[in-house]
Each structure stands twice: as structure tokens, then as C-alpha cells.
């Protein structure tokens, strides 16, 4: 077990090495984003209206690729800049459960019907869950 843990730690270090360029790139973009993109500019994209924010969130989340933590970082910044939880939650969900870029691969592995059903359901669920999560959150805050 100790041997296994050792090799697992080694793998973790390797993972860090592999993701570090992308991580640094995204962090660099976040810095630019924070400095050059003003809240006013973001408000035109995410204006706080539930449906509008969710549409933007699902759209951007669905076409974005990368490790899920990227969506947390971007989502967190969006929230700071005044986007609603509706939009940010939709963004995070779409980021992980929808992948326009990997669609061809999904079709080729699972077949047409399964991929269509799964992606359509995930699209609908991004909206449903964003509403459910935001409404529930309001009960606590």
C-alpha cells in the first residue's frame, strides 16, 4: 500500500507538471480579465436577469474545454463582478456535463441516439438545476 501511495503521489506530481502550463495561462487570463474587463462590460454579458444569465452560462460553459477547476475560477470571478448565481451555476454545470468539442468522439463511441439523448437531457438539466440550486440557496442566505 505504501508503495502504491508513493507511485500515486508521483502521479499527482506529474499531473501538476502536465496541467501547469494551462493553469498558468488561465491565471494569466484571469489577471487580464480583472484589469481590462470592467464590471460594466460584464454586466452587458451577465446582466443579472435569470434567463439571460443562464443562457450565457450554458452557452459559454458548453463550448469551453479544460479541467473543471477552471470553471470554478472563472465562475468565482464572474460572481464577484455581479453575475447571478443562475448564470454562474449554469456555466459550471455546462462546463462539466456538456462538451461541444468532444461531441464527435462521444457519437463515435456511444452511438447517435445515446449521445443525442444524454446531451439534450444535460442541456435541459443545466437550466433546471441552476434554478433549483439558486432558489434553494436563497432559503439559506
Amino acid at each position: 500500500m505504501l508503495q502504491k501511495l508513493k507511485s500515486a503521489l508521483k502521479n499527482a506530481a506529474k499531473t501538476l507538471y502536465v496541467i501547469s502550463p494551462m493553469l498558468l495561462a488561465v491565471i494569466g487570463l484571469v489577471g487580464l480579465f480583472k484589469t481590462f474587463v470592467t464590471p460594466q462590460m460584464l454586466h452587458t454579458l451577465f446582466n443579472g436577469s435569470a434567463l439571460h444569465d443562464m443562457l450565457m452560462g450554458v452557452g459559454f460553459g458548453g463550448v469551453s474545454v479544460g479541467q473543471p477547476f477552471l470553471s470554478y475560477i472563472i465562475g468565482g470571478e464572474l460572481l464577484d463582478e455581479g453575475a447571478s448565481f443562475y448564470g454562474v451555476t449554469a456555466f459550471i454545470l455546462a462546463f462539466v456535463t456538456l462538451g461541444v468539442v468532444q461531441l464527435p468522439m462521444e457519437f463515435s463511441i456511444f452511438g447517435f441516439r445515446f449521445t443525442l439523448a444524454r446531451n439534450l437531457l444535460s442541456l435541459i438539466f443545466a437550466f433546471l438545476l441552476s434554478v433549483a440550486i439558486t432558489v434553494t440557496l436563497r432559503l439559506f442566505v
Binding site: S20, P21, M22, L23, L24, A25, V26, G28, L29, L32
Partner: peptide
């Protein structure tokens, strides 16, 4: 994946 990360980092450096 490593390569796409490097490309992305290159783009960001260029942007800066």
C-alpha cells in the same frame, strides 16, 4: 494535452 497547455500559455504570453 500538455502541448495544448503550452500553446495556450504561449498565446497568453503573447497577449501580455
Amino acid at each position: 494535452k500538455n502541448k495544448s497547455g503550452l500553446v495556450m500559455l504561449g498565446i497568453v504570453v503573447l497577449l501580455y
